[in-house]
């Protein structure tokens, strides 16, 4: 009675537990090492979703231009509606901008717009536009810091670029690359010799499925479709 009860030792489980522990240690450290080796060699880092769990690419580079995404819907009356700020409020997950701004590949933004349409009252919608607004990041600096470094006044100017146009059923009718990709592409076309070589070397027949960057994708059988919010 004076001695408290102690968890009884489990005979025969000790060595098995140890073997399993060692096996787990080896597997876990191997998985972490594999992730780092793939990352170092830049091979297979996107081969499976689970690679995201073991590849530590936490600094992927930052561009010189900041951008925000605007989601707008055009009604039959040619009235435009704001889908970026839904009437029930928006989640600012990591700071003070909403989630469509964290979609660099523009893969899910259309779905967000369609979801806002699905849960709001509105006239019939003819199309949804995903528009990217960009500006040089130096213009983000607070005025006090700006005045310490720059003698010129801050002259804010934004560049707008339509990234995607969707029909209300989710069909993509137009898709373009980002502002930054477009600027990088213009560098090559600014070289007349290179542009001439590229033009003369272009194949006669279009390769179906490889839309030219920056040009409209075809509407019809080749048009891709994004996932529309499904009914619950």
């Amino acid at each position: 009675m004076g001695q408290p009860a102690v968890n009884p030792p489990r005979e025969g489980t000790g060595s098995m537990k140890r073997i399993l522990s060692v096996a787990f240690i080896v597997c876990y450290v191997s998985a972490l090492t594999y992730g780092n080796v793939c990352h170092l060699l830049r091979h297979g880092t996107v081969s499976h979703t689970m690679m995201y769990m073991i590849v530590w690419d936490m600094f992927c580079g930052w561009s010189a231009y900041d951008s925000r995404v605007h989601l707008i819907a055009e009604g039959e009356s040619e009235t435009y509606y704001d889908l970026s700020h839904p009437p029930w409020g928006e989640l600012h997950a990591f700071g003070y901008i909403s989630r469509e701004n964290y979609d660099p590949f523009n893969s899910h933004t259309g779905t967000i717009g369609l979801n806002v349409l699905k849960h709001t009252r509105h006239e019939p919608i003819t199309r949804i536009l995903v528009i990217e607004e960009s500006w040089p990041k130096k213009l983000n600096l607070p005025d006090a810091i700006w005045n310490l470094r720059y003698d010129n006044p801050k002259d804010r100017h934004s560049y707008f670029r339509v990234r995607t146009i969707l029909l209300p059923d989710g069909t993509i009718t137009k898709q373009q690359d980002s502002f930054l990709s477009c600027q990088a592409r213009k560098l090559s076309t600014a070289n007349p010799r290179l542009a001439q070589d590229a033009f003369s070397g272009r194949p006669l027949f279009l390769n179906e499925g490889n839309g030219e960057i920056g040009r409209d994708l075809p509407v019809g059988p080749g048009a891709s479709r994004i996932s529309a919010p499904s009914a619950q």
């Binding site: 435009y80 509606y81 009437p87 029930w88 009252r121 509105h122």
Partner: peptide, 19 residues
């Protein structure tokens, strides 16, 4: 359901202006 918020026409024209 709540109505959608309208955007001012001039804002849309600015966004849809030629690049």
């Amino acid at each position: 359901p709540l109505p959608l918020l309208e955007i001012a026409r001039e804002d849309v024209e600015r966004m849809l202006a030629p690049e």
